[in-house]
Design a protein around this nucleic acid. Structure first.
Lengths: 242, 242
DNA sequence: AATTTTAGTTTACAGTGTAAATATACACTG
DNA sequence: CAGTGTATATTTACACTGTAAACTAAAATT
């Protein structure tokens, strides 16, 4: 008995493996996923998985790619739900709201891609970069269009210069030099949003009901107030004078 | 041969185990630590460790407690390095600076206590709460004294109400109801600082030289500008009128 | 129909955490 | 000092993990 007849085996085993992996991850925590128990759940033997994923790491990478795709979809959909001129702030806020919603709906996926890496896992950047860029591209676009309208307040934001040889250099080399501060602002926004969300997801939060939602909305407001200039008003005027 | 003579064994084996564990963690990543390889490094057998730690989890807990203690020391030292009245902002900033410095000096310790938890590890809150409270107490004190001086701008900060039965309820029940917004502000500050630092530590950062330091200083400034009112000025005056 | 490829199985090996039984060095007691 | 008890290790054993190698039979191709 070396191979069951096709009738008795489920089609699309590759996808089934990933599904089982997600099921396990979402209940038993992040990196306690085991090839053997996946196989058990699917009624096959463990080495059979190696026909679809060369490695445990390869499986993890596939999961990460899927997670990034799902996250990226969610981000871009949110942004595109407020089309048209004059709604740039709505687009920025919508991506922010969607960020937390997706993270709370899929905490383990969030931690898988943005948390600290799985034990021995070294992420293959070449494979992950495209999906990473796309998923964070929504925020970048939202900030970028505000900048294009002259409505981005970059006061005090450090103007970065390129560092060659870094893992993310590929992203940056294509960018316009003049837009580098936009990246810096996006980075700050991302870090704030990530800070709150990751603390909330990992349970390191105060015992206040709806604290997550309330603090998150407060932070979105803070972000808009700090970085977004009011529309029109001809040029840049100092809006804060003590 | 069931037990080597005391001359040939190292004293304080309990501490030696933790040291070996740290050595392994700092080089081979967070949760790839193995009792057997610790034993190998110390020239003993694996089950001997069970005389000092009832579990692999117990060892991890001990490491976490130590990490919190080191982190807490660092935080309080930073705060106390600017004593005296009129230097409240210095104290707040110093704890902020120290926060990142400690995290960068001990990235694995940082991820161990503030990152996503180790695979199957369920943190024993009863044991960890005291060290957690103490370590975050420095920030809380820095924010609290500003509040006591009427220099804390809590505009828009959500006023939380208590939620019973939460893991952290013990902390909060002792707190003055009127000081709850102080906790909220401290929480926001912590989340911003944690967001930047955790992204920097896990390598999810743009390829800009010193981006971490520059963005971090920018965020500290943002925090002070948003939450700290200028001294004196009799009462509270609206400093932002558009 | 013969051959090759595909997609599984079985077997095996080196890891891991940990429970149970065992043995000995040391500290106490009679 | 002899005898006992306890602390601290070792040995052995078990269940679990990822994964490499050999093998086998179903399906596709020639």
């Amino acid at each position: 008995m070396a191979r069951p007849s096709r009738a008795s085996q489920l089609p699309n085993l590759g996808e089934s493996i990933k599904e089982a992996a997600w099921r396990q991850i979402t209940e038993s925590g992040a990196s306690s996923l085991s090839l053997r128990s996946i196989a058990r759940e699917l009624g096959i033997t463990a080495p059979a998985i190696y026909n679809y994923f060369s490695d445990r790491d390869a499986l993890v990478t596939a999961l990460i790619v899927d997670a990034y795709a799902s996250f990226g979809d969610c981000q871009h959909e949110a942004r595109e739900s407020h089309p048209g001129p004059g709604r740039e702030i709505d687009r920025l806020r919508a991506t922010g709201i969607a960020y937390r919603k997706w993270a709370i709906d899929h905490p383990h996926r969030y931690l898988l891609i943005f948390g600290n890496p799985v034990p021995g896992y070294e992420p293959p950047m070449q494979e992950l970069l495209p999906v990473m860029i796309r998923s964070l591209g929504a925020l970048l676009a939202a900030v970028g269009e505000l900048h294009a309208l002259g409505r981005l307040d970059m006061e005090g934001v450090p103007h970065p210069s390129l560092e060659p040889g870094h893992r993310f250099s590929a992203i940056m080399e294509t960018a316009d030099q003049a837009e580098l501060p936009v990246y810096a602002v996006a980075m700050v926004i991302w870090s704030r949003v990530h800070g709150l969300v990751s603390l909330e997801i990992t349970g390191q939060f105060p015992p206040f009901p709806d604290a997550g939602a309330a603090l998150y909305l407060f932070e979105l407001d803070s972000i808009c107030r700090q970085f977004v200039l009011p529309p029109d008003h001809s040029a840049t005027i100092n809006r804060r004078m003590p």
